[in-house]
């Protein structure tokens, strides 16, 4: 067996403060694909949007409020909601905003729209509304993609246009 290596004499310790610290970073990226089953409630909403091109809400059996987007239970009363009601396609603009576009994304005008027959608001985008017409309370109408391209996603609704 070869002899154990003789350890090198220890260098005198250098205080950390005396070292020049080179800024150094390790880079990483987390790449995980995700797939979220939409379940009974969102799944039904999206399937009807795809198949019928229409928007639906769920009515709470207790407080009678119609939630769009639908929630499996009324968020206030905590009872199951199973009473689907058609809403829209017209509604009222409650809010909008523009934010500088992220790289590779077109500039958007995001909006909250309370559809006729609904008590809560749907988040989506506005399409071609001239800036001088934008106001809270503006009447808008859902623009749904043609049946051939709908795939059961919220983007089957292209957005809202001014009526």
């Amino acid at each position: 067996m070869p002899p154990d290596p003789v350890p090198a004499p220890l260098a005198a310790p250098v205080p950390i403060a005396a070292l020049t610290i080179e800024p150094r970073a390790v880079e990483g990226r987390i790449r995980i694909p995700y797939r979220w089953p939409a379940g009974r409630t969102a799944g039904a909403f999206l399937a009807r949007l795809r198949d019928e091109g229409r928007l639906y809400g769920l009515r709470c059996p207790r407080c009678k409020q119609v939630a769009v987007p639908p929630r499996p239970r009324c968020l206030a009363c905590r009872v199951p909601s199973e009473d689907w009601v058609a809403v829209g396609p017209e509604g009222e603009l409650l809010s909008w905003t523009t934010a500088p576009a992220a790289p590779a994304r077109p500039a958007e005008v995001w909006a909250l729209v309370r559809l006729d027959g609904a008590d809560t608001a749907l988040f989506h985008r506005l399409l071609d509304v001239p800036p001088d017409r934008l106001r809270v309370g503006l009447r808008v109408r859902a623009d749904v993609a043609s049946p051939t391209v709908r795939r059961g996603a919220i983007t089957d609704l292209i957005g809202f246009c001014a009526v």
Partner: peptide, 12 residues
């Protein structure tokens, strides 16, 4: 896999 329910429905 529970493909029949969303996460909130699973929790419920």
């Amino acid at each position: 896999r529970r493909l029949d329910v969303s996460a909130p429905e699973l929790i419920d």
